[in-house]
Structures are given as C-alpha cells and as structure tokens.
Design a binder for these strands. Structure first.
Lengths: 237, 237
DNA sequence: GAGTGGTCTAGACCACCCC
DNA sequence: GGGTGGTCTAGACCACTCG
C-alpha cells in the first residue's frame, strides 16, 4: 500500500478516536518522521490529505492543529464524498430507474461546444427518473457522444451508465465540472418527481471527463430539495 | 516568487493562448524539467495545480493531456474562485448592506456545538441583506463568538466582516465547510429579497475557520437563485 | 534566536500503459 | 520492453511565528 495514505488514515483514526482533541497540536513533522520511519515529504503529503479533507490546518512557524469541529461535522468529513460532494438521504434503500426518453440525435451548438464535438456527430439523448424506495429523487437529462460511449441499451440505463462505462467499456472517469442552482420544476417534472410547482429543486449542470481528457457526458439533474444536500470544504490558497 | 506557481501560470497561459490545444499532450515532465531548469518534483507540483483547477489530466504510463473544454468553460476555470466556489452576477456593481438585526446573545446547543463553545458564552446575532445596484442578492444569518472576533460595530457590518477580521484584527481565514440546498423564502425573506413566496433560493450553511483551526463563524445565507451559481471541479482520487 | 512548515534538489525505484 | 507519471529518500535552504 501507499505509505502516505496509510499514515493519513492512521492520523485521521487518532483524531476520530479522540487521541488528538479539537484545537490540539499534532506532533511535529520531524517527530512523525521518526514515529512512522519515513522521510519528511511523505509525512507532509499525508498531513496535506487531512488538510484537504478538512480535519486539520497547518501554519508555517507554528505547527499543525486539529480543527474545532463537533462529532457530527467530523462524521461528515469522514464519509467518502471527495468525488461526488453529495450527500443523499437514501443509503440502503431500493433504487429504481425509469426511462422517460432514449433517442439518438444531433447535438445543438451549445452542447456540441461543451462536449467538443461537431453538430453532425451523434449523441444519446436520455431522460431518466431515479427512485429510492419508490420515492422519486432526481430527474436527469443526459447527452453523451455515441462514438465515445458505444453500445448503450435500455438495460444499461436501468442500472448505471457509470458502471457500464467503467466495467464494460473499461474506461476511467476522471473528473466533473459542475454548476449548481436553485430552480422550480416544470410540468413534466412535477409529475415525475411527484411535487407541486412551488417545490424547489437543486439543479446540477455537469460536464464529465474521461481520464484521457475527453468530455463524455453533458447532463442536467434536477434533485428534490428534500432528498439532497451538496457538501464541500473550501481551503484558502 | 514560488517556482512551481510561476511554472503553473506559464503552462496555463500557453493553454489559454492555444499553444496547447484541447486533447493535446503536454511535454513530458522530464522535458519540462530541462525547459524550466528545475527538478521533476517542482514540475509535478506545477502540473498538479492545473489538474486541481481542471485544465489538464494526468495518466501514469501515458502522459499529461489538455482537457476537452470550450472557451467558456476555460474562462470559468480561470476566474479565481478556488476559495469561494461562487460566481455572482454582480461584478462592478454598487454594493450596499442593510442591517436587519444586530444583537449579542447566548448560542443554543446546536450552534454552541458547531462553534465548539459553551452555551453560556456570547455570540453576535446578525441578520443582513446585501444589495448589488439596489437589487437584493442575499440575506445572511450570522453567529460569531465575541471572544474570537471582538469589537464589531454597525460600521463594520455595513462594509465587510471579513475585511475587518483580516485587516483590523489581523486574523487569517483558512477554510469553510459548506452545505448547499434549495429552499423557498419565508415571509421576512420575501419582503427583504423582494421575491414571491414561490421564488426558489439557494441556501448555504457554513462554518468558517481561522488559521489556528478555531471556528469563528456559523452562518446561513439565502441567495436569490437568479443572482448566484455555485461552480466546482471534482477530481476522482 | 529557536523552531515551525514550505520549497526544492538529484536521484532511485515502482506501477502502469502501450507497442 | 521502453517510457510514462507516482512515490519516496536524505538532505538543504527559506519564510514565517513566537518568545
């Protein structure tokens, strides 16, 4: 295993176990070098992981300190949401997907630009509704180039497109660029999400990228506001 | 200046200038070492900055590639929103602040826990409305321990609390932990934000931290959905 | 002035990709 | 098998904080 991740995990474990308390100073980097038997750069990389996650802060000239957070916040930081950033209220629930639309079309100018393809290329045009324990959670409008992601069929959409991309096509998803807004549902969405026209939704506009840098998905998701929260940690540079 | 930041800036400049095109491979790390006259770790750190910003991706065994993004997206990545994550539509507009409430109270249990203080400590209890060119943008509910941030008066609230904390008190703001949801306004907010009861708002719940790790602010902001977007780049680990 | 974390070097070996 | 980026070392000097 990778040393710096193991060390980061170990320090994190000590913080959660209360071995290092809120506001307390961590051992010096030099001391940790001896303790774990590694060089200083490795310790630095490990602690930097914890800074990114939001557990500790570092100050040149002073030291490294555990942040003043309560147990609930610490739990939030611990769940693995580094990639998604989302916390949904449907763990362990039964997931079902309903396909509203599944066509192949030419992209308009805007979507061609966002996916960096030509307007005479083809894209899937997909609309799906996701349920957790029969409660509608989100409606997703997805456009994907058929060249990049060939062979999508109904049964793929009923499960997970991402699963298909990674496990069947053996492609790797690298990142997503997102814009988040608050909106109201249109009539179609009121029906599918079973909410009133005055029920607020969280809109997530997203471009997703493969690990060779190509954009493979442009999607807009409208989430029921009672079923989703977006959580994030921002560090000043 | 710091070498890796200068190099990151230079590569970013070349990407924006079209010297490296979408999908194109960057020079190898070894070559860049020669080109810039630095060691490989320094080049690595520079390129990692561009990965974080969303301009490029790296693949072990293959190389580093410019992401397939259009000019608009590239512009988005270029604006300095690494800390805030927000894009507001009020650049160069006249900002005004209205103070709705300004008291000192004891925190309730929840807020005491989030700020890691006792319920018999004191906190400022502030409600403000911010305008851009006389359009109401956001209503902010703020709680701050008076011990950490002493001396706040009306004129501080009319300008910027953050300016006061950093320039007057000489404290440094290190990070913020945020939760984002979609909601509807209550009656007070309908009046202050000049919107109907069915107008969606973006709620941002935030705990902010100083660079010694202490939580100095708990705030809830309700933004008019037509005036704010939250933008973010997520990288899979 | 003593001690902290930040940056940087010159080199090594490893995991992974593609031919 | 040849080449990529990822991890790691053992050391150096620097910028910053604090007494």
């Amino acid at each position: 295993m990778i040393k710096y991740q193991e060390i980061a995990w170990d320090i994190r474990k000590n913080i959660l176990a209360g071995k290092y308390l809120s506001g307390e100073q961590l051992p010096l980097e030099k001391e940790m070098c001896k303790q774990y038997g590694v060089s200083r750069i490795t310790i630095k990389k490990a602690v930097d992981e914890l800074v990114k996650l939001g557990f500790v802060i570092k100050r040149r000239g002073s030291g490294t300190f555990v942040k003043s957070i309560d147990d609930e916040e610490a739990k939030d930081l611990s769940v693995a949401r580094q990639f998604t950033g989302f916390t949904e209220t449907n763990k362990g629930k039964e997931i079902r997907t309903e396909i509203v639309k599944f066509d192949i079309v030419h992209p308009d100018n805007e979507i061609a630009a966002k996916l960096q393809i030509a307007t005479d290329d083809f894209v899937y045009d997909i609309i799906r509704v996701r349920f957790a324990d029969e409660i509608p959670i989100v409606i997703e409008y997805t456009k994907m180039p058929i060249n990049l992601i060939p062979g999508i069929k109904h049964d793929v959409l009923l499960k997970s497109i991402y699963f298909y991309i990674q496990c069947q096509l053996k492609l790797k998803i690298q990142s997503a660029h997102r814009s988040i807004r608050a909106i109201l549902p249109n009539e179609l969405e009121q029906q599918h999400l079973k909410v009133a026209g005055t029920f607020p939704l969280l809109e997530v506009e997203q471009i997703a990228f493969l690990d060779d840098g190509r954009a493979f998905e442009y999607s807009i998701s409208h989430h029921r506001s009672d079923q989703i929260v977006f959580k994030t940690v921002s560090i000043r540079q």
